[in-house]
């Protein structure tokens, strides 16, 4: 079975380490916050200018001055810091954020990512995504492996306008966990019940398949 959104978030959460500053994008990446492993502490960075994002507010705590990068009302956890957008992107571009998780339309074997613009469709903008991919050394891209019509999103070369060039080295799809190195995808893990053959078939870019590809396991 392909991974659910929640399972994808769970799998990404295993990459979190104690003491990490983490920026989570909108969509599946946001769900990662629900699966932070017990016994470790991470600080969530929200690029509008908040380090140490907490949970959503109760009705009593609701405050229009307290939002996250998705413009949702949030709280700050104890030990949080709030600052300007310039300061926030200094952290991001300066490589101070330990892990960035974001979604994409396409990723290619050279680590290029396209995530903000589909020509001919309404273009709303890149927000902070271009700064995030340019600044982070450690990025996990979450996406479905193929479109609804079965077309691969892991390509030899992105077809859509790029968000960043040569900046992605890890991808989690609903079918597999892969790394990108020296111009090729490397299959590291597969979703439970998904065959290596199916992943090969749905990966258009160059793919290295090791002899043993472990299956992911989930508690729930």
């Amino acid at each position: 079975m392909a991974l659910t959104r929640e399972q994808m978030a769970q799998r990404v959460a295993r990459e979190l380490e104690d003491g990490f500053y983490v920026n989570l994008g909108i969509g599946i990446p946001t769900l990662v916050a629900n699966y932070i492993p017990g016994g470790i502490d991470v600080m969530l960075q929200s690029e509008n200018g908040l380090l140490g994002m907490g949970r959503y507010p109760t009705e009593d705590e609701l405050d229009p001055d307290m939002i996250n990068a998705g413009k949702e009302t949030v709280t700050a956890r104890p030990g949080a810091a709030i600052f300007s957008s310039a300061e926030s992107f200094a952290m991001i571009r300066g490589g101070h954020v330990d892990l960035t998780v974001l979604g994409a339309f396409e990723v290619d074997q050279n680590g290029n990512i396209a995530s903000w613009m589909i020509p001919g469709k309404l273009i709303k903008g890149m927000g902070g995504a271009m700064d995030l991919v340019a600044g982070a050394e450690n990025i996990i891209c979450t996406m479905t492996h193929a479109s609804k019509h079965g077309e691969s999103k892991l390509l030899e070369s992105c077809s859509l306008p790029l968000t960043g060039a040569g900046c992605i080295n890890r991808v989690l799809t609903d079918l597999a966990y892969l790394e990108i190195e020296n111009g090729t995808f490397i299959l590291k893990e597969r979703a439970p019940g998904i065959s290596v053959e199916e992943i090969i078939e749905k990966t258009a870019g160059k793919l290295i398949v090791p002899d043993h590809v472990p299956e992911m396991t989930f508690d729930v």
């Binding site: 310039a86 926030s88 571009r93 271009m130 340019a134 600044g135 960043g164 060039a165």
Partner: peptide, 22 residues
């Protein structure tokens, strides 16, 4: 954000990796 910050600080332009190759 940096366009505003630099503008206010008397810096006419700056280099950034953001957007290279896009």
């Amino acid at each position: 954000a940096e366009k505003m910050r630099a503008g206010g600080a008397g810096i006419p332009a700056f280099y950034t990796a953001t957007g290279y190759g896009t």
